[in-house]
Simulated scan of single mutants.
Amino acid sequence: MKYFILPIAALLLISCGGNSDQSSAGNYADITISMDTVVVDSGDEILMAATNFYNQTLNQSADRLYFWNYRSHILEIVDLNEMVFLEKRRFEKEGPNGVGQFPNRIILIGEDKIGFVQWAQINIADMNGNLLKTISIDEDWMKGELNENESLIPYGFSDDGETLYCAIATPQRLNSNFIEVDLTNKKTKLIELTEFDKREKFRVTFTVEMNGGISTSTAPPSLDYTRHKDKLIFCTNVFNNIYQFDPKTNSLEYITISNSLTPNEKIKDYENDVNSEEAFFRIMNEIQEEVSFSNLLWDDVNHVFYRITSFNMPRIDQEKIKSKVFISIISEDFKVINEKEITDNVDGVPNGYSGVC
C-alpha cells in the first residue's frame, strides 16, 4: 500500500461555532482553523499527481481530482471524499481517437467529457478515450470581437459543451474581457469586464534583444473564471470585487466585497515595462507585497464561499518568503460574514481549503 501527499500542500479545516441555523451569520462568529496534510491512498500506484499542482483539475462538485500527465497521455483520477486513487486512463496521441501530440492542459465538460487543449485546437473525448469532435478556436467567425494580434484562450465550457468561454491573449496592453462562443450557432458575445482594466497597472514586462531577435517575459495579474450553479464568477488577484454573469439572462453584475482586516485592492503604481531582469523580479516582488485574493471556493454543505487573502512580507536577504494570510467566509449574496488572520495556522499561502460545521 502506498500513500502520497497532494501538492495542494494543505487543507484548511474550518469549524464554525454557534447554533445549527446555517443561514445565521452568528453561526460563523467563532472560526476555528486547523491545518492538515492531504494524504491519498494510491494503492500500489506511483502517481504523477503527487509531483505538481499544474494540470490538476476539479470537477464541478469538487469530489474528483483529475491530473493530466501530458507526457504519458495518462489521466489520473482521485476520489477526494474517500481520499483514494481510483484509476489511470490512457488516451491515444494519434489515430481515430487521438487527442493530439501535445495537449498540455485539459478542460472538463460536464461529468463525462474532456477537452484536450493543443495550441488553437481543442480535441473533445469521452472518459473512455473515444474522440468525439475537434474544435478550432482560430476560425474567422470567432474573431469578430478581437483586435489584430489578439487570440482566444479557452477557459471553460457549459455542461453540454455547446458554449465555450475564452479570455483574450494580447501581446500589448492586457485585455480583461471574455468571449462567449456559441459553437452551435457560430456566434460570439463580448463580456466586458471594464473594471478589470485596472489589472494593466500591475503588469510587468521585461523585453531584451537576444540572438538577433526580441525576447519578452510578462508577469500579468491573474484573471480567473469559476462556475457557481448556473452563473459564472470572474475574479482577479488584484481586487476583492468580482463580476457575476448569468448566461440565461445575459446579465452582468459588478459586485463589491468588503473586508475589514485587509485592503480590498492593490493600489501602488509600478513601472510596467523594464529592460533588465533584475528590475523585472524586483517589481514582481513588490507587487506581491500588496494584498492578493484567491478564487472563491463554494462550500456546498454550509452554503458559503471561502476566500484566502494574503500578502508577502518584505524579504530579508535570502530568507524564505513569509506571508500574512487571512480567510473570509462569504455568503451566497457575497456579504462577508466573518474573517480571520490564519498566518500562524499555515505554512505559506494554502491553495486547498474546506469547511466543516
Rank of each mutant, 00 (worst) to 15 (best):
E289R: 13
T57V: 10
L232H: 06
Q172H: 14
V99R: 01
L11W: 11
P263G: 05
Y165G: 01
N149K: 13
D317S: 08
I137Y: 01
D159G: 11
N69V: 03
L232G: 05
M284K: 14
L86E: 15
F305L: 06
Q172V: 15
E94V: 12
Y54A: 15
R227Q: 11
G212V: 02
N97H: 07
N240V: 06
I109H: 01
K340W: 02
Y165K: 02
G161I: 05
N123R: 10
Y66Q: 04
F4G: 04
L190F: 03
N177S: 13
A49G: 13
S251Q: 07
S42D: 14
S354H: 13
N338W: 03
F196N: 06
L193M: 08
R282E: 12
T134H: 04
F293Q: 08
F53A: 14
F239A: 05
D63P: 06
P103G: 00
F334W: 13
G95E: 05
W141V: 15
K198T: 13
D112N: 14
D79C: 04
I153K: 01
L252M: 08
K93Y: 04
N52D: 12
G352F: 08
D299M: 09
I153G: 00
D21F: 07
N295E: 06
Y3D: 14
E278Q: 12
V39F: 05
A29Q: 12
N259H: 11
F91R: 05
V325H: 02
D182G: 09
E319N: 09
T309H: 07
L261S: 06
N259L: 08
Y270Q: 01
D140H: 15
D79K: 01
